[in-house]
Every structure is written in structure tokens, then in C-alpha cells.
Write a protein that binds this DNA or RNA. Structure first.
Lengths: 331, 331
DNA sequence: TTAATTTATACAAACGTTTGCAGGAGGATT
DNA sequence: AATCCTCCTGCAAACGTTTGTATAAATTAA
């Protein structure tokens, strides 16, 4: 691998001049520049990212921390992050926590040690202190999907209106006994959706039906179990709202097991569409989240923060994406 | 951030001694060691990964290149890679190519420049030269899912027997007119499955029915279009094999659109289960691929290669995972 | 014409590690 | 008593950049 030194030797100048020429960072005589470019090209010179990182104290990398990828919205968001980061010249390193706060802590420390310039995290909510420290230490942090610390920037969807609109929509379709698979209330997205649900139900003068479980919240099983519970306790339910798609699939299964026809006897919808809904046999109505764009936004946010002012003094920003209802066969 | 120098000063020794003590890389007097540990702890010392990377020429990072993540087997494989890499002390940086050879080339170069120690790639097959160069240049490369260069190690599933077994299975269920959604023949997994299909069909003395499209191969639309074509050209088809789950979903939709009952009138199965099958309304029979384990294997392979011998002289290894048939309601 | 400015280049330090080499102290072996 | 290990530590170089400072030449301003 050719180094700056090699190029300098070939072009008959000092390494500093080569550096300045290649980075356009100071005056360099056009002729010299020419010679340097030629030399660099001839040697196939490519700057050593590690050396640059050491010198500059940052390595053009952003760290992404998610609970999991498979069968979740995060795989799509990650694609958005990666695409945007690449176009801005950054690499993306990803850590999967399996929703374990210990693992999350460890990964965050590793990321910091490895010198990432910024962090995007869909967290467990139990490492707020560490995250604030990192932000204070000059590594901007953007919260993804789950907003947990107001002191940190975030990119989320409007969960409350999402839950609210879903109820209103179902009511407009004639539903009066609407259940919610509530999800983990300590996580903002689930809590927000519940709030929206609750308010809409109150506004309409209806009764609340909710259910939760201590299974892994991002799963088919969670939806299945909760839906069964809802249906068994309230046989006259006419709609079930699931917070995420895989839960919705579980609910569909549960309805089938109880011999209920969708959508005639019961309507089912999801509040976090990630385009699975339209692939099903009975396509599922859902509030679609612009996952890819949310990823792009998060990447843009964190990179702007770290490039704009190294002192991270910029005000925190909270970006709220609207969700759009897509009606399909399940309602 | 405390540096080695700070620790050295506090412990009253030279930085080199601190380095050796902390890395257990040479004799250090127990008392001195004690002092050094104490000093390091007091200062909250954490080694600077970038400096170490520069010095050692490698940064404990492996690069992963995939065509996409969302709704594909790669999101699960990536989880396996990440988990294994982390336990072996490596970070994972991920690049998404969208199946574009130009993008792939660019990402590979960026990865190389940024000093990754190894690469795991599910590639387009059009950058073989570059990949071989990288391997020759000391950066081990492992091909993932798609084996394209025999000179490089690989982790794949046994596609041929997968296609073969599927046909045999369907035949055992009484099917005689079995169609295949063939996929992109320039990609090994699809080609292999076709070969298995072809051979089994021949052994059974049956007729071949295949279909392909020039849509994005990893999609619902691909499966849908191909299935419609198969069904319209051969109304008496009694089974359709899709290479991957999302294609299978498309095929199910297509069958429904043609008014065919599953599994009575037509059986449908997928050859790359990634656990979507069991969540559907009509659960889908599929050859399940141990995606997570394949990811783990790939990570282990690439890390062993780079740690075992820096000269990368080790023989290439090809790991072939068996797939297991899981029968569900669609057959 | 002289002083001030701009342009162009080189020197050298720094970023924080790891590591080859040298050397001192002490014990064991000849 | 000389030699040879083993244990322990420090010095200094190196990894490949970026960047502050110095300086010389060319240009402009006064």
C-alpha cells in the first residue's frame, strides 16, 4: 500500500504538501498539484483511514444500536441509515442488543472506545446516564423510534395520533368494542400508542380492552397470546389493534383459532406497518411508518450534529414522522 | 480520556511497561502490575482503538456486504454474524448494495480503505477480481449464501439437495405437475435449486415447469408474477415451489387470484424459510435454512482465517449447511 | 522603493499505541 | 568467579496522517 511518503518522494515534495494538495486545504501551486495527483494515481494511493482517524480523533463511523433486525422495522430503518451515511461519507457499524440492557451498555462502551463519531440507538431505556455522558463527551446521540431521554435528539413516529387515528378509523367502520394489544408500557412507542387509543376510546365513550404479556414484545407469540386473552375475556370484541406487524399476524392466527372471520366478525390492524401487510393472504390494514426515511433522517441528524459543532452545543432536535393509514382486507 | 501516558505517570513507570502489563505480553513484576492496574482503574483508562489499529495495521472490524436487509434472510444472518463477531471481540460494519455491482465495488473499496480485517459478502458476482485481490492482499473474504469464486471460502446451504428434496416431498404428497419459480440463474443459490429441481423431476419422469421474471428477485412481486405466469400457462399445475419466502407469499396471492384453494388444489412451498412461514394464515411449508448459525459460521471462518495466519495461506473452506423440511398447511 | 500581503513549500510535532533492543538485577550453573 | 539464564524495566522508533510554525518567493499596496 502506497503511503503519503511514497507519493511525496515520487512527486519530489514534502508529505505535508501532498496532504494539503490532496485535501485542498491550503495553497499548492497548480503545477505541483498536477505532479502530486499524477504520482498519487500512479501509485494507486489511498489514504490510510486509521492514521487519519487517530490524528483527527474521529473515524467517519457512526454506530447503530438496535434490539434486533430480523422481522422488525429496524432492518428497514438500518437500510435508510446506511444509505444516508454512505452518501455523507460515513460507515455504519451495527450492534444488536436483544433488548438486554447489559449487552447494550457493553456495546455502547465498545462503540465509544472504537471511536465512533456518533450513535443512533433504539434502546432499552436503561442506559440513559451513559448516553448523556457520551453526548456530553462529544459523541452526538440520536434516539431512534424509542424516545427516552429528552436531553437527546430523536427520530420517532407520532405514536399517539397513530393509536388515536386507528380507533377513529375502526369506529368509522362500525366497530364499538375495540381491543388493543398494548405492548411494553415502559417503551415510549407502546406507551404513546396506548395513550392515543385511550383518549380516542374516551372521546367516543367506548370501553377499553387491553392486554399485554411478558413475552418478547417484538414477536408473533406476543400478539397471539394477547389476542387470545382479549378474545376469550371479551367474546364480543369487534376489532383488535396490534402495535406492530408481527403481533398483528399473531392476532390473525388467534382470531382464526377462535373461528372468527376477518373482517366480517372481527377487524384487525397494525400500527407499525413495514410492508408485510400487503403480502398476506388477507392483507392487513396498518398505519405505515416511513421506516427508510426515518433511518435517513436519523443519520442526517447525527452527522449534522457532529459536523456542525464539535462541541455538540447544538440544540437537540426531535423529528416526528406522521404515519399514514393504509386500508386493506383485514378491516 | 486517559491515555497510557497518564497511567504510566501515575504508576511511576514507562508507557511500554503499562502496555505490557495491560496486555499481558511480557514479564511485569506483580507489584508493578498491581500499581498499574490500580492507576488504570483510577483514571478509567480505556485503550484508544484507533491508535492500536494504526500501529497493528488492523482494527478488529469485519465488513459485511449484503444486497439488502429488509424482508430477507440477510437480516437474520447478519444477527448471527454480529453476535459471533462480538463474542470474538470484533465490530461489524455493514454495507447494503441493492444488488448493484457499482455500489458493491465502491463499498468494498471503502471497506478496504477503512482497514477492515475481513469481509463477508453476499455479492452480485461481478467483483470477483476485486475480491480475489483483497484476499491476496491479506484481507480474508468469505462468501455468504452465494458462492461465486471457488478461490474464496464460503458458507452456503445445500441448494441442490434442497430443490431436489422439495420435489420428492411434493411427489410423495401426490403432486405430478410441479412448477418452479426459478429466480436469477446467474446467482448460485437459484441455479443450484433449479438443478436439484431438474434432476428430481427427471428421476421421477415428470415434466418441468419453470418461470422467471426480470423483477428484483428478492421480492413479493417476483413470486407473484412468476406464479401467475406458471398458472396461466399450465392450469393443471398441482404445486409451485418458490425459492424464497417472499416469493412464496406472492405465489400464494397468485393462487388466490386464480381461485385455487391451498393446499387442496395447489400446494405451495418455499425453499428458504426464514420463519415467516409459520406466521401466516395458511402457514407455509418450507425448507428452513439455519440463517443465524450460517452467520455465526461465516464470522468464525473469517476471523479464524485472519487470526490464524496473517499471510492468509490457509486453505479455503466451504461450509455447506443442510436445510430441513418443515411441513405446514400450504402442502 | 519599501513594506505588507499573498502564495507556496518544508520541517517537525503530534495523535496513542506496540514492540525491538538494550541493559540492570538477581539467581543458578558451570 | 565467571558465565548464563530469567525476570523486569526503560528508551526510542514506528504506524500514516494532519497541522502549526517557519521561511522564501512572488505579488500587491503604499
Amino acid at each position: 500500500m502506497a503511503t503519503l511518503k511514497d507519493v511525496a518522494k515520487l512527486a519530489n515534495v514534502d508529505v505535508s504538501t501532498v496532504s494539503r494538495a490532496l485535501n485542498n486545504t491550503s495553497y499548492v501551486h497548480p503545477d505541483t498539484k498536477e505532479r502530486i495527483y499524477a504520482a498519487a494515481k500512479e501509485l494507486g494511493y489511498r489514504p490510510n483511514v486509521m492514521a487519519r482517524a487517530l490524528r483527527q480523533g474521529r473515524g467517519q463511523v457512526i454506530g447503530v444500536v438496535v434490539p434486533r433486525l430480523h422481522m422488525t422495522i429496524f432492518s428497514e430503518i438500518l437500510q435508510g441509515i446506511e444509505a444516508q451515511a454512505q452518501t455523507l461519507g460515513y460507515m455504519t457499524t451495527v450492534c444488536v442488543t436483544e433488548e438486554d440492557a447489559k449487552v447494550e451498555k457493553d456495546r455502547l462502551n465498545r462503540l465509544r472506545d472504537s471511536g465512533v463519531d456518533g450513535i443512533i440507538i433504539a434502546g432499552t431505556g436503561r442506559n440513559g446516564r451513559l448516553l448523556r455522558d457520551m453526548q456530553a463527551g462529544g459523541v452526538p446521540v440520536v434516539q431512534l423510534v424509542r424516545r427516552q431521554e429528552l436531553e437527546l435528539s430523536s427520530v420517532v413516529a407520532d405514536y399517539e395520533s397513530c393509536g388515536h387515528d386507528a380507533v377513529k378509523f375502526l369506529a368509522s367502520r362500525g366497530c364499538r368494542r375495540i381491543g388493543l394489544i398494548a405492548g411494553a408500557q415502559h417503551l415510549a412507542p407502546f406507551h404513546g400508542r396506548y395513550e392515543g387509543y385511550r383518549k380516542a376510546i374516551a372521546e367516543l365513550g367506548l370501553e377499553e380492552f387491553t392486554s399485554s404479556s411478558d413475552k418478547q414484545v417484538n414477536s408473533f407469540g406476543y400478539g397471539h397470546e394477547c389476542a387470545l386473552q382479549l378474545l376469550d375475556e371479551n367474546p364480543d370484541l369487534d376489532a383488535i389493534i396490534a402495535c406492530i406487524d408481527v403481533q398483528g399476524l399473531g392476532a390473525i392466527r388467534a382470531a382464526a383459532e377462535r373461528g372468527l372471520k376477518i373482517p366480517e366478525q372481527i377487524k384487525i390492524m397494525s400500527l407499525t406497518g413495514h410492508r408485510v401487510g400487503r403480502m398476506l393472504e388477507t392483507t392487513m390494514t396498518s398505519m405505515e411508518m416511513p421506516a427508510f426515511q426515518m433511518g435517513e433522517a436519523a443519520a442526517k441528524l447525527v452527522i449534522e450534529a457532529l459536523e456542525a459543532d464539535p462541541g455538540h452545543k447544538a440544540a437537540r432536535r426531535h423529528i416526528n414522522f406522521a404515519t399514514t393509514l393504509v386500508e386493506r382486507e383485514s378491516t
